[in-house]
Design a protein around this nucleic acid. Structure first.
Lengths: 104, 104
DNA sequence: ATAATAGGCAACCAAAAGGTTGCATGTCAA
DNA sequence: TTGACATGCAACCTTTTGGTTGCCTATTAT
C-alpha cells in the first residue's frame, strides 16, 4: 500500500492515470503526446505505476499497451480513507470545542 | 490537492495521522514517543501535514496540541477516488477481453 | 533487405526529501 | 529567579526522485 501512496504522490503519474481513465489501453508513445517530458521519463513513471499494480501492460507486437487497474485505488478508499471518515464529525466537534476554549 | 497526496506519500506521516486518529490533540513530545526519529524530524513531518491542512494546531502555554483535520482526506475520496470507481467494472472487463485476445 | 518505428537500458545530474546535530527561545514550577 | 521542560530555527548531510542524453534491440512496412 505504501507503493501505491508513493506512486500517487506525483502529479505527472496521476495525470497518466487520468489519461488512461479517459482512454484505456494506450501505447507508450500515445501517452507521451503533449507531455513536456521525454519518452524515457514517461517510461519510468509508468514503471512505478506498474510496480504499484496501478497499471497493467500487454505487449502487442512492438507496441506496449497500458491498462489502468482501479483495484488499488479502490482499496485506498476502502482500507484507508474510510477509517478516517468514521469519527470525522467527532473530530471536528472536538476541534471546535478546543478552538472555543482558546478564548476562555 | 497535490500537497495532500505528497503529504500522504510518507509512511511516517500516515502513522502520525493514525496516532492522532486514535488520540486527538496530542503534543509534539507525545507524538515523538516510540518513534525511531528525533523530535526535529517529527516537527518537520507535522509541518508538512499542517501545510497540507491535514493537521491543525493549537498553542496551549508551552505545549502545541495537534488535531487531525479529516476534510482533505475525505476530499481525496470524493473528488479523486470516486472518479476511478465509475467505470471500474468496464475497465476490468475490457482488460479481461484484451488478455483473452492475447491467445488468438 | 533495409529503413522507420516502438520501445528498453544505463549512466549521469540537479533538486528535493528525510533525517541529523547544535543552539536559541518561551513557559512553567520550585 | 532559576532550572527544567516544550518547542523553534538553521545549517548540514545522504539518499531518493524526476529528469536528461546516448545508444541498443525488436518489430514492422516498403
Amino acid at each position: 500500500m505504501n507503493e501505491v501512496f508513493k506512486a500517487l504522490a506525483d502529479a505527472s503519474r496521476r495525470s497518466l492515470l487520468d489519461r488512461l481513465h479517459a482512454k484505456n489501453g494506450q501505447t507508450l508513445n500515445e501517452l507521451c503526446d503533449g507531455l513536456a517530458m521525454t519518452r524515457q521519463a514517461v517510461t519510468k513513471h509508468l514503471g512505478i505505476l506498474e510496480a504499484a499494480n496501478l497499471v497493467t501492460t500487454l505487449r502487442h507486437g512492438r507496441e506496449k499497451l497500458h491498462y489502468i487497474n482501479p483495484v488499488p485505488i479502490h482499496q485506498i478508499g476502502e482500507r484507508w480513507i474510510k477509517k478516517f471518515e468514521r469519527g470525522k464529525l467527532a473530530a471536528l466537534s472536538e476541534l471546535k470545542r478546543q478552538l472555543e476554549k482558546r478564548d476562555e
